[in-house]
């Protein structure tokens, strides 16, 4: 009884704080069902009628499905590349240790300290020289430098794999390459999930690199379309909120499905960081 009372107390204390935190999302949703005039008059209230024209307008005017395709392609290929390059690099560092590899490890880890902003101008020049501006694969190449973070996660995890495992496989006639792809890589599954979640959230949401390296409407990512639409819709907030809801839906689904994994990832990343 006493404990139950305390339980309710927490609920009551937290309710207003939770509502306040959630309030922007409430505003986004209710204003998608209003006309511009109704939003100007009553931005906070529940919509009078469920006006759906904003949705049809946004779907008609903004190439959202195309942008979603672009974002998915860029994210999937970049993350795939990073995971494979990162895992591959961890393999010799862990299983073929020595002076050279210690040096290489330090060289790769230095990447953590180099902010993207510091490399941005020469990167822009490089991309221009190689005609990689406004190319989806150009952006993928830029992101592939982020493999060092995945490498770091993979290295930590790989150290927990017993050394006898690949040795036994060598005796069984498995080559260095075979050991990695058939034995080591499948064992990395838990940390791979973490790495995929982390890198997906970064690339899916990234604004700076796409803004710099993509410019034609045909190649725009979702976030770039949001940026452009903000300019176009200007103060037509109902249209902008509608776009926001549509862009948030896949992220929300990802969040609901992956919440536990994301939390695990935060902890895993933090403990090693």
């Amino acid at each position: 009884m006493e404990i139950n009372k305390r339980r309710w107390l927490m609920d009551i204390i937290m309710l207003p704080i939770g509502l306040l935190t959630f309030f922007p999302f409430y505003l986004i949703i209710v204003n998608t069902f209003k006309t511009q005039a109704e939003t100007a008059r009553n931005p906070i209230s529940w919509p009078k009628t469920f006006y759906l024209d904003n949705y049809s307008y946004v779907f008609r005017e903004v190439p959202l499905l195309h942008a979603m395709m672009n974002t998915t392609v860029i994210t999937a290929i970049s993350v795939g590349t990073m995971v494979i390059f990162g895992a591959m690099a961890a393999y010799p560092i862990v299983f073929n240790p020595g002076k050279t590899n210690k040096l290489i490890m330090t060289y790769l880890m230095a990447g953590f300290l180099i902010p993207f902003q510091t490399t941005l101008i020469p990167l822009f020049e490089l991309m221009t020289d190689f005609r990689l501006i406004d190319r989806l694969y150009g952006l993928v190449l830029v992101y592939s430098g982020g493999s060092v973070f995945v490498f770091f996660l993979m290295m930590g995890y790989m150290k927990t794999i017993p050394k006898e495992l690949p040795e036994a496989a060598i005796i069984d006639g498995c080559g260095t390459s075979g050991i990695f792809w058939k034995i080591i890589f499948p064992l990395l599954k838990p940390i791979t999930v973490t790495a995929i979640i982390y890198q997906t959230m970064w690339i899916w949401n990234d604004f700076l690199a796409p803004m710099l390296f993509l410019n034609s409407s045909n190649n725009m990512t979702l976030i770039l379309q949001v940026y452009r639409a903000k300019g176009e819709f200007s103060v037509n907030w109902p249209l902008f909120m509608t776009l926001t809801v549509i862009v948030l839906i896949p992220i929300f689904i990802f969040f609901i499905l992956m919440q536990k994994q994301i939390v695990k990832g935060i902890v895993g990343g933090a403990v090693k960081g």
Binding site: I93, T118, T119, P122, V148
Partner: peptide
């Protein structure tokens, strides 16, 4: 196995730095 990461990291991070 180090070749891919060394290539992309050197070209897209270290060289620009």
């Amino acid at each position: 196995f180090l070749l891919p990461i060394l290539t992309v990291y050197s070209i897209f991070t270290v060289y620009p730095l």
